[in-house]
Design a protein around this nucleic acid. Structure first.
Lengths: 194, 194, 194, 194
DNA sequence: CATGAATGAGAGTTCATTCAT
DNA sequence: GATGAATGAACTCTCATTCAT
């Protein structure tokens, strides 16, 4: 039972994710999910009481497959600067992607549910990324690739720029060149400096 | 009639703005607006067909009072660095403000209506701000306050960071210290450098 | 407006009364009322939020036509004993009536909403009836038709018996003879005694 | 199987009784019963098709523990008037009891299912009580405690008053004094008389 | 027998939108 | 123009009832 039930729940979450990617968070109704899932009206309510619960499960289950693509693409003995470049490239791809993604739904959800200091998914992801970038910059500084006196500050600056670019992309659309330019700018700040 | 009609329209927009500030964009119904405006249901439809039209009018009419506070607060013969500092302070205030603002509604609206290359309000405001900052940096560089080889790049960097901070604030909440730190960081990049 | 609106409300209440007479109180749904009224789903909600509100309005509006039949049937210069007899006859008719009446709905409603010390319709009607009977008995005693030392006690006893008969009729059904017997019994108590 | 099955049925009825005491008759759903019984949804349907069947079983099984308290409390060689007084005291307790009882559910049930001339539980209980009171009055009359020419009539009158009091209590609430007064009144009618 | 997931009918409720006045 | 009553579509949610296991 726990098994089949869990199976079903997973299926619902999977299908629901598509709906949220397509329509954002607020727009989605239980009916939308029901229809996407080929499930009965009442059936959905066995597992979730409202779209909020469904979406939170989508978030919870979604973290696994998050950066799969990225991590796999890192060569064995890559230099810190190379890894950082790869990371930024990955981010660029996401920023520019025309494919529907959960991003907008996530923002809509957190606009409505701001109040979550520590369990906030966005914050966790942001902090984790800052940490990784910081370490890369430190390593790069040690082996002479980078010159940077405030690795953490630089890492944070990069992440805020990326967040700004994301929003710019979702709310206006920006050309690839603009993303490249910004990435270039922050990379410059790490390398040259003298 | 053009007069009374325009008067009425203005009243609606004014009241509707409050509603959008309170509830965001998607949540708002025609009923909400009708109730806030003490107008008849049919009356509203004489001016606007749906919440989208109302919101667009809100955006159009709202630009006036935008940076009033800021511009007034600039001293007569302030140095470029001082003006920039004031601007950033203003931004900080907005980022940290707990008062309901149109910001979230604006994001929600543009998530749904991304496709507007040139008339996009967000883009216009962003570009305008970039231009101002760029000029300030150039002036500052000339009079020796700043050292900066790529004023436009730096200006854009600052604006993306601010946008990132805004989103961070709306979706997670950030402490004042975090905002200060980021502002400090970008200012450092302009001043020191040697 | 107040006029047409009141008109409509009255119509709804009228039709709704039928529904409550037919189905009791708890069984009735907003849909039932909507259908009986040839009104739209949303239309009903303009006037009432739920069946409880409708029923309370039915109660409020219904008191007028209550004892019409009775009062009209009283001859000009009837003796107290005759009036009392008429009253009891009226009660008997109601107790035995096979026609759907609001009675059961009223009981169901007050089972659920017992808590109303002073505005309780049932109590008011009961007390009013007790008062009338008491006065009749007093008058009858004065002119020698009755012999009774505790007019109020007797009046109350009569009303409780009638209430008991009503319930008996609604929950089991009782023959006319049983009602006659009880009425006879209480009347005996007033007359003979010598 | 008859054994285990009967056991289970009994358990269901026991728990269901609580539900009916709590919520009346009409309000109760199969779901309510299932939940109170810690039984499976399908399981309940093996024994009962709907709440009506359950409630009828509750009624059938419930008669046992009915007047337990009363019968036990009768002293060995009590005088008829004493026994009657005890009986009325017992009735008073039930009328005024704030504890949830099956009473309201019973009324609701019989409002809906009036048509049962001979197997009607309420009628049976009523008639049985009348018979007992009649006998007590007769005995009391014989030994000089009472004076009463129509024992059956008096007995019936008492029972209808009690029924009226019960309904009054369930639909409006009545103070203890009111119950006392009515009981006193009917007792007076038996004793004094001259 | 017993379970409980699943179904689908139906009640409740809210609004965008229309239209007679 | 302006009003607000009226409509009906769309959504949410709950249960009686069934059925594969």
């Amino acid at each position: 039972m726990g098994d089949k039930s869990a199976q079903k729940k997973k299926l619902i979450v999977e299908r629901a994710r598509r709906v949220f990617m397509e329509k954002g968070y607020k727009e989605v109704t239980m009916k939308d999910i029901v229809e996407e899932c080929d499930i009965s009206r009442g059936g959905l309510y066995l597992y979730f009481q409202n779209t909020r619960e469904v979406f939170e499960e989508v978030l919870r289950c979604g973290q696994e497959d998050a950066d799969d693509g990225f991590e796999k693409s890192i060569p064995e003995h890559a230099a810190p600067s190379e890894i950082l470049a790869l990371f930024l490239k990955e981010q660029k791809k996401e920023i520019l992607s025309k494919k529907p993604s959960l991003n907008i739904a996530v923002y809509e959800y957190f606009f409505e549910n701001k109040m979550m200091p520590k369990e906030n998914l966005l914050k966790k992801q942001f902090d984790a990324a800052v940490y990784i970038i910081e370490k890369l910059i430190e390593q790069g500084t040690e082996n002479g690739e980078f010159y940077c006196e405030d690795a953490r500050g630089a890492a944070r600056n990069i992440m805020y720029v990326l967040e700004g670019l994301k929003i710019a992309s979702f709310t206006r659309g920006i050309p690839e060149s603009a993303v490249d330019r910004e990435i270039m700018y922050v990379m410059q700040g790490l390398i040259a400096e003298e």
